[in-house]
Nucleic acid binder design. Structure first.
Lengths: 126, 126
DNA sequence: TGCTAAGTTCGATTCTGTTCGTACTGTGTC
DNA sequence: GACACAGTACGAACAGAATCGAACTTAGCA
């Protein structure tokens, strides 16, 4: 049992820099479910996204386009939404763009070590 | 890249106690894929199975029946097979019974910390 | 004002997984 | 030998997820 189970009524956001746009709807830290997060990460494309965010950025948010994924936009919307709704990423709307970053602190608090596995992952080289 | 990528033609089994029945077909350690393992673990019933194996046994193998799962046999066969084919569990045939245990060493070698998350998991209490 | 670009929404299709009934297989026992 | 029992195999029904085209929304800009 995580000791963070009872911080009262679901807090949705974390203290982050400042004056940023509101994050799009996402599960609160204490509502993160292992099975849901694992499900979101059980897809190579989404692993690619999260790993790229972990390794090649972490400065700050990135747009869909930044990833250079060769898929139609509607497919990307789908996957980014899946990641966000599982609680893996946080998305913010900056004008036209929707930028994402990994909820490192939240995930590390609830599932320590999980992100390290994602960072160490390599796509199937077959 | 895992450094264990080229031990020649896939070795299928590990040195275990002795004179045990051959394990049913399973992926070799170096063929374990994160996305596949996560997919296998993204199901509450299978998380229950693996967690129970980790916490309440680890002495040695257990039959399907031992888990006391309230599902038809054909469903259980399906889930146990999914776990085995993903490389999470190893199964051996003992006469009539098919017994399972978690491939702790293999998983720990490839995905360190993952099993700890499963052990810490609790079913949705809603 | 009207274009362009980022991304969404919707809906259709396809794929994959789950669930489970029924029939089957093989071992041990009386 | 015949029965019970653990578990599989097969196949159908269903559910949910992936994929993606097409039409839409909206901010910024010329």
């Amino acid at each position: 049992m995580p000791s963070t189970t009872r911080p009262g009524p679901a807090i949705r956001t974390l203290p982050e820099p400042a004056g940023l746009p509101e994050p799009l709807p996402e599960p609160a830290v204490e509502d993160l479910r292992l099975e849901t997060v694992l499900g979101a990460l059980s897809d190579p494309l989404r692993l690619t996204i999260v790993r790229k965010l972990l390794l090649e950025s972490e400065a700050f948010d990135h747009t869909c386009g930044w990833f250079g994924l060769d898929r139609p936009k509607s497919s990307l919307t789908h996957h980014f939404k899946a990641l966000r709704e599982a609680g893996v990423t946080r998305q913010r709307q900056y004008g036209l763009e929707r930028r994402s970053h990994v909820r490192v602190a939240d995930l590390e608090a609830r599932f320590p070590g999980l992100l390290a596995l994602v960072a160490a992952w390599t796509p199937d080289e077959s």
